[in-house]
Design a protein around this nucleic acid. Structure first.
Lengths: 333, 333
DNA sequence: CTGAAAGCGCTAACAA
DNA sequence: TTGTTAGCGCTTTCAG
């Protein structure tokens, strides 16, 4: 059987109606007499007609496809966001074209352009750092864009997030309350807007407000071994409490601390800021800022569907509640 | 700026050539005089012309898009396969439409049909269990299909896998050699072809060959808590060595065993059969059958590119080497 | 090396 | 309620 053996034209002829009528039936348009509709449906069934979505897309200028831009699929943070997005996409009958952008030769704006050339109806952007060129590319187009689990510098794009400042401050308070005063904020990339504009200012404010000494921000801690290798430095500096944004790094740090004979949480407390599976299966279990990743994705996609239907957004920036889950990597006095 | 303000026609007029020539330039066809090419290129740059991939797709009947069918994105097994696929896809300039099929109301064949309607040039199927309808849908179409990290009952589709029988047998030998004789095979779904046709027969053969008593197969262990809750039953039955196919379950089992005071690996040994991140960060680290997931994905996608170019496959079923990584959840005598 | 012209399969006014 | 008729933006023979 060939790629497309039966077209709308075949159905029309066989059902003795015009292509327009078949098109109406296929698209659920009500302006068709029931009798006609049934006849057309019967022929569609009989001939196994399937509409060619590419032709539909060209004619209607809507592809029912959205683009997803994600750094890395194997990072559970993004995988869980994606799952939320996907479920809502299915609900609204959109397909998803996924593009990873981390460690790619192709520049981000080229990736975006590729998506736009495919005529996606919308884009969800999840990379932690919205580059200049990417922002420019988005601004040049009518195609709606929503950010999920990431922020832009000036709120120009709709987004779904948690209140990172509040979450971090609450976590820092937990550490301080446990008697830990030499604190660290450990991030993957200082320049990511989420860190630059939220986490770092919150950390600095907390340190200043509480007149803490010897607190420090560590940058460039991205994977398990980064975390593992960082611990000695923390120990030397007397750091006894840390918030880490990536949970794989947290686990590395945790294991490293344990391997070097540190007592967690007595000597050293850890809070991880993205509660994926991985944080909950290690022992001692990690205290986490639990972000509602699935929901963030779902909400972002829901916003996008509204924009794609020109419905407008009542709220451009949705903030979902987080939870501080206290486990065994903190004393929780 | 509108979705598409400049078309091939605009470029043609501006460059004083025909659309055909512009098309040739865009597609890198050599039959264009350098002078003409340069002129067209200049106009393309100047007008910021971007080809409409949907129109290209309709006219050429190739969309440079492939469909990915995956149970669940947040399962690292599939995420890592997907990463390999994605990297090769980028290399060959294909986009990826990803469809999750686990816990969906939509039946698998409907998902596949949706992909075919979008005129994908090929499909990579990674679900653990290729349903009847799915296989039928694939057989009805000319669109090439490749299986990655999964098998079909009768080798009808090209695939990339490891030798599951050999891997499991090697792992079982490790357990036996460590003195563990009451062994378990713990799977997510007994009926998945990979289990039914490979892992289970290998297990049964091993048990028979070594005349072991009290060995057993456990089904339906899919997530962390399934694994966690299974341990008491294993303990009661005196099972002292287990191969588990899902590593999240392995971790549940491990933690459960430790929580109940069992010594791992002295009293109880564990080998997990899919070495994702999660298996390597827990303590004691899990001994794993390390499948080259990234490579399996990459190889599958490479096969697909060949099929999409009608190049034919020298080898329909590619078997990649695995590694048995001995860690602390086995004695490794 | 280049252009003319016929589609690809469908949607969407507009008429009837 | 239905049909006619232009396209959507591009590729691809076929001629020249």
């Amino acid at each position: 059987m060939n790629k497309q053996d039966v077209t709308i034209y075949d159905v029309a002829r066989e059902a003795k109606v015009s292509m327009a009528t078949v098109s109406r039936v296929v698209n659920g348009n009500n302006n068709v007499r029931k009798e006609t509709r049934d006849r057309v449906m019967e022929v569609i069934k009989r001939l196994h007609y399937q509409p060619n979505a590419v032709a539909q897309g060209l004619a209607s200028k809507r592809t029912t496809t959205v683009g997803l831009i994600v750094p890395d699929l194997t990072n559970l943070y993004f995988a869980e966001l994606s799952k939320g997005i996907d479920d809502i996409a299915v609900l609204y009958k959109y397909n998803i074209i996924i593009s990873s952008v981390e460690n790619r030769l192709m520049k981000e704006d080229a990736v975006i352009q590729g998506l736009l050339n495919k005529q996606v109806d919308g884009v969800i952007y999840m990379s932690n750092k919205l580059s200049e060129e990417a922002a420019e590319a988005f601004k040049r187009t009518d195609t709606p864009v929503v950010l999920a689990g990431t922020v832009s510098d000036n709120l120009e794009f709709p987004s779904a997030n948690i209140d990172y400042k509040k979450a971090d401050t609450e976590a820092l308070n937990l550490l301080l309350n446990d008697g830990k005063k030499k604190l660290a904020l450990i991030v993957g990339d200082k320049e990511a807007p989420i860190n630059r504009n939220h986490r770092i200012p919150a950390f600095e404010k907390f340190v200043a407000d509480n007149e803490l000494e010897g607190c420090e921000i560590f940058d460039n801690i991205k994977d398990y071994s980064d975390g593992y290798n960082l611990y000695p430095e923390l120990a030397k500096k007397g750091i006894n409490g840390a918030i880490i944004t990536k949970d794989v790094s947290s686990v590395g740090l945790l294991n490293s601390a344990l391997d070097r004979g540190a007592k967690v949480p007595e000597d050293f407390e850890i809070v991880t800021a993205s509660a994926t599976q991985i944080a909950s299966v290690v022992r001692p279990a990690l205290t986490t800022i639990k972000q509602p990743l699935y929901d963030l994705g779902a909400v972002a996609m829901r916003m996008l569907t509204k924009l794609m239907n020109d419905e407008g957004l009542e709220d451009k920036h949705i903030v979902l509640p987080y939870e501080l889950i206290k486990k065994q990597s903190t004393l929780n006095k």
